[in-house]
Amino acid sequence: MSAPAGSDVFMTDRTRSGHETTSPAPRVARRRRAPLPLLVPAALGFLFLVAPFVALLVRSPWGDLGSLVTSQGALQALWLSLRTATAATVVCLILGVPLAWVLARTSFPGQNLVRSIVTLPLVMPPVVGGVALLSLLGRRGLLGSLLDTAFGFTVPFTTLAVVIAETFVALPFLVLSVDGSLRSADLRYEQAAAVLGASPWYVFRRVTLPLVGPSVAAGGLLSFARALGEFGATITFAGNFPGTTQTMPLAIYLAMQDDPSTALALSLVLMAVSLAVLIGLRSRWVSGLIGVAS
């Protein structure tokens, strides 16, 4: 008879859906010593990632750092970068979460093609993205020419163009992250909510979003980081002008042409800001959300 089998199913489910808040077993297991064939490549991999940054730190113009970093140009570029990356992240969330939902929760012909197209900006050189955006929104672009004749408004060389370029390259990160999480999420919670009388929109807001909250946060974080570092699409589509379109990566690239110590100093600032964002959000916001949702 199947009484034990029934409780087994139940226990498995409890564990999966996180009803067990603290179980000591996994923690002990996690402290296991890594076998050498894993440990050595892991250490090499980490070194490979961190060594260039350490070198950057070592060779940085520490003496002049204060004045270089607080120069008006540097602050202007940093402030613009933070503003545009934040705006791009917000747009990514507004467009990307619904897009991920449609990809994960509905089925329609050509869905896999759509999924591939969504990730295209991820694998293409960003400069190509910039050219593509110009083809659409440039003054002679498909849409841009209409905007120009109708409103006398052109998108390139504006801060809006920076946000568009950053959103273009950052959106796939959010969609991928949320799509994956939605597809692996337990559908039965959404079913339970629907049975209780919740409309699909209410289910999305009150059950689905909390369920995938951590991955939305992680996706938003990745999008922000990607937007912050965006260079190719920005310089191609939005151009380069201090205060309007010159973000930190552009300022760094141009400083490298004739003033390498400023370029180094700006790189340090961008690195510090990115790291602070990654560490800060990881430790507080994301882990907080994970704590709530599990």
Binding site: G6, V9, F10, D13, R14, S17, G18, H19, R188, Y189, Q191, A192, A193, A194, V195, L196, G197, A198, S199, P200, R206, V207, P210, L211, G213, V292, A293, S294
Partner: peptide, 29 residues
């Protein structure tokens, strides 16, 4: 559609919403 049926279904695994308290779960519907 599911939400219009006015059926009360208690799942074997209960499926309480983990981000809500007991009372919030009951108030959900």
């Amino acid at each position: 559609s599911v939400e219009e049926r006015r059926c009360g279904l208690v799942f074997q695994q209960h499926l309480l919403f983990s981000h809500l308290s007991a009372a919030e779960n009951v108030a959900f519907g």
